[in-house]
Simulated assay, not measured.
Amino acid sequence: MTRICVAGGTGQVGREVVRQGVAGGHRVAVLSRNPPAPGTAGHIDGAEYFRADVTTGEGLAAALAGADVVVDCLEGFSGKARKNFADGGARLLAAAQDAGVGRAVMLSIVNCDRSSAGYYRSKAAKETVYEHSGLETLVLRATQFHSLLARVFAAGARVRLVPVVKGARFQPIAHTEVAAALLDAALEAPSGARHRVRTIGGPEIVNMRELARSWQRATGARGRLVEFPLPGAMGKYLRAGLNLVPEERHGTQTFEGWLAMHADSL
């Protein structure tokens, strides 16, 4: 039985790693600044929760004690969290090494090192921290999640304008499949390599307009599809197709399949 410490185990992907790990019979510790109380929606029965903060180091030793592997699902979307994202990763890895953890697995984004967007740059900086760590490390780069596109469409639909980035295509993947890949990486036998990068993408590449239409059919949401050119770093990233990995179609759940499974909550 493996003891897994999941950093950021209360977020979308991290919570799923925790759920799958517990279901697989593993001992799972969850590291979070705000652990959910037993009986609440975010609490997974069978997991052990620790209040810890990678920005200060507080609580890390207790959360990592006895762990065989740490899975890093932490996010730094904006502000101070993004600015300190790589430093937090370094602090987590140092604490893991002190605790005798054998491996660390990090969730990242495809081609983040080829984008100048702030969020993607923070991911790339953290990848570099992992690359130079004293632990055996693996970075799992994923394409965008189905849920991200659904949120974008839903936000626009509130004003009856469903946004479509001109020329953009996506290869979305289910967060549950990404969580399974993270867990597989955490549990596999030692490779002998100090650092590896692995990529996982969804099963199909689809124009954003078609994805928006699928979302409208599934939700019944009304609104006009509005195509617009996206400026800046993200527009450049999407126009270059850097969000796509055609050779790495590991997911099996399509966007339409995901919509059908989540129709009641969309």
Rank of each mutant, 00 (worst) to 15 (best):
R194N: 08
S133V: 15
A52S: 14
V226Y: 00
A181Q: 06
C112H: 00
A157C: 07
P172C: 13
D113V: 07
S214R: 05
G89Y: 03
M1W: 12
Y237N: 10
E204S: 15
R82F: 06
P35I: 02
T252S: 13
A174T: 07
T143A: 09
V165H: 07
V162P: 03
S147M: 12
T137A: 14
A174W: 12
V18K: 01
E227C: 13
A37W: 01
H26F: 11
A263C: 08
L138R: 04
R114Y: 06
R15W: 05
A150T: 14
M261L: 13
A180N: 06
G46T: 04
S265I: 08
E204H: 12
G88R: 01
L183H: 05
G39P: 05
E127C: 07
P38E: 06
A52V: 09
G156I: 10
G241P: 15
G235T: 12
G100F: 11
R209N: 11
G21A: 07
R114Q: 08
L242G: 09
A67G: 12
I200G: 01
T254R: 02
F85P: 01
L230Y: 08
V110F: 02
L161Y: 01
L238G: 04
G25Q: 13
V129Q: 06
A81W: 00
R194E: 12
P246L: 10
E188P: 01
H132L: 08
V129C: 05
G24L: 08
D87N: 00
R213K: 10
L64F: 13
G59N: 12
I44C: 09
V206Q: 11
A47K: 02
A233S: 15
G79Q: 09
L149P: 12
R249P: 00
G220N: 10
L74T: 15
T10P: 05
C5P: 08
G167I: 14
R51W: 04
R33F: 05
W215K: 11
A67S: 15
I173T: 13
P246A: 10
E210W: 09
A181H: 04
G57Q: 00
F170T: 11
T40S: 02
F85W: 10
H195K: 08
G232F: 12
S133G: 15
N111G: 04
N34Y: 03
A23W: 07
Y120H: 08
A86Y: 03
V54P: 04
L182H: 03
A124V: 10
A47S: 03
V164M: 02
I109H: 09
L244C: 13
M106T: 04
F50I: 00
A179S: 05
L148W: 14
M234C: 09
A65D: 13
L242D: 04
R114W: 00
Y120D: 02
K126P: 00
T55G: 04
S32P: 03
A81K: 04
N84S: 00
V139N: 10
K166T: 13
R217H: 11
F85S: 07
M208H: 08
I44K: 01
T2L: 15
G21V: 11
L211P: 06
A260F: 02
E16M: 02
G66C: 13
A193I: 12
G57R: 01
P203D: 06
A142D: 06
G57T: 05
D87S: 03
V105R: 05
T56V: 06
S115Q: 07
A179E: 03
V70S: 15
G88K: 01
Y120T: 01
A186S: 12
F85H: 07
G257P: 09
G241S: 14
D87T: 04
L64Q: 08
A81F: 04
A65F: 06
E248P: 07
